[in-house]
Simulated scan of single mutants.
Amino acid sequence: MSDQTIIRFEHVTKRYDQDAPVLDNVSFEIERGKFYTLLGPSGCGKTTILRLIAGFIEPSQGNIYFNGRIINNVPANKRQVNTVFQDYALFPHLNVFENVAFGLRVKKVSKSEIQKKVTEALRFVNLAGYENREITEMSGGQRQRVAIARAIVNEPEIILLDEPLSALDLKLRTEMQYELRELQRRLGITFIFVTHDQEEALAMSDEIFVLNQGRIQQSGTPIDIYDEPINRFVADFIGESNIVPARMKADYVVEFAGRTFECVDKGLQPNEAVEIVIRPEDLEITASGKGKMQVRVDSQLFRGVHYEIKGIDDAGNAWLVHSTKRADVGAQIGLDFDPEAIHVMRFGETEEEFDKRLESYEGSETGGGGHGH
C-alpha cells in the first residue's frame, strides 16, 4: 500500500441474507487526489462499493481501510466522506445558502464560520450571488452545483458521486462533465464517481474500475481500458468493438477471417484459440481487392462526423467500420488496418496474467510500447 492510498478494499464481499453476493471478494486501492469512476451495468456492484465507502452499509466479509485504519463499523457521520446523490437530495423549503449550510449547522459551527465556508463553497462551484435563490427556481445543472457545494463545505477527504448526471439532458450533461472534472482538479481531493455511461467514464476519469456481476473485471486509465481490454465483456462494454474468433499462430502472428496477420502480441501458445478486438475507427476503407481483407457492405448510416458501415467478410464475421468515406450497400470493399490495431484477448485470463503478458512485449522492437492507437 502506497503513502497516497486513502481507501483500500481487502477481499470485501457484500451479500444480503442468503442471496448471491452483490460484491464478491473485491480488492482494490484508491489514491488521494484522483478522479475515479466505477463503471458497469445495473446490478454490477458499483453503487454497493459507494455505499460501503460512505458507511451506509457494512461488508459481510473482508476489511475496508481509510488512511490505513479499518472502518468497517465506523458510522457514516464519523467518516471524512460526503455523497452527492442522483436526485441531489436538496431541501426544497430551504434556499441555496441554507442548503449548503445545513451540515455545518448540525455540527454547531459558528455563524461567522458558516458564512465564510458557504460563501467560499458557492464561489468554487460558480454560484456566487445565488445565496438567496430558492431551490425550486434553479436549473438541473445549478441544483447539482448546490449539491456539490454542500458536499465540499464540510471539507471531506473524499466526495462520492452516485450517477449525478443521469437526470440531465445531453448538452447540460456534457457541460457538467467538464465542470466536475475541473472542480476536482481545483479542489485536489478524491472523487469517486458511479456511472453506467462509458463515454462519461472515458472523458472524466484518471482511473476506471470496470465491474460486472460483483467483481472488478479490469482497472486502469481510460486509454488502458479502451486500448487493452482484458476480456470480451470489457471490450464490448467500453466503446464499440469488432470481436472475432482467432487463433494465435506464433509470437506476433494471429489468424482470423481465414487469413494470417501480423500483430504486436506475444506470450501465447502456438495454435491457442483466442479472440481479437479491432475498434471500428481503426479500420480504413480501401478499394475492392485491396487492403488486408474484403467485406460486403450490409448497411450504412450517416452519424454526422462519420459513416457507420456494417459488412460481412468471406468467413461470415461481421465488421463495424467508422469512416469519413461512404460505401454503398451491397458493394464489395477492402479493409486495411495496422498490426497495432489488433488486440489479442485470451479466454479466462485474469487481470494479473494479462498485465504480465503485456509487460512481456511492451518496449520490444516489434511491440513498439503497446497498442498506442
Rank of each mutant, 00 (worst) to 15 (best):
D282Q: 13
Q294N: 10
D282P: 02
T286M: 15
G330R: 10
L268W: 08
E262S: 10
A318F: 12
R326C: 02
V297S: 00
D314N: 07
Q300D: 00
V295H: 03
I333N: 00
L268S: 02
L320D: 00
S299C: 07
L301F: 14
K292H: 08
S288K: 04
A318P: 01
G267Q: 10
F302I: 05
H306I: 02
E284H: 10
H306N: 04
E281V: 06
T324L: 15
L301Y: 13
V321Y: 05
G330I: 14
S323D: 04
A315H: 05
I333S: 02
W319K: 07
G291C: 08
G258F: 09
V329W: 08
N271G: 01
I276L: 06
M293A: 01
S299W: 09
D265T: 15
G289W: 10
L320A: 06
L283W: 06
V329C: 09
G316M: 11
E281N: 11
I333T: 01
I276V: 15
D328C: 12
P270T: 05
D313R: 10
D265A: 15
R259Q: 14
T324W: 15
Q294P: 03
A327F: 06
D314W: 05
N317R: 07
L301H: 13
S299R: 11
V274W: 09
G304C: 11
G267Y: 13
E284Q: 11
E281T: 05
D282W: 05
V321R: 05
Y307S: 01
W319H: 03
L283G: 00
E272V: 12
V329A: 07
I312F: 14
G289C: 12
D328G: 10
S323V: 10
H322L: 13
A318S: 08
I285H: 04
D314M: 08
V277S: 03
S288H: 02
V321L: 08
K292S: 11
W319I: 10
R279T: 08
S323W: 13
I276G: 01
A287F: 04
V295N: 01
V295I: 15
R279Q: 04
D314E: 12
V295A: 06
T324F: 15
I312S: 09
G291L: 10
D282E: 13
P270R: 14
V295L: 13
N271P: 00
S323A: 14
I278D: 00
A273K: 14
V329D: 01
D298M: 15
E284R: 09
E308N: 12
G291Q: 02
P280N: 07
K325H: 11
Q294A: 13
P270Y: 14
V329S: 04
K325N: 06
I276K: 05
W319C: 01
V264D: 00
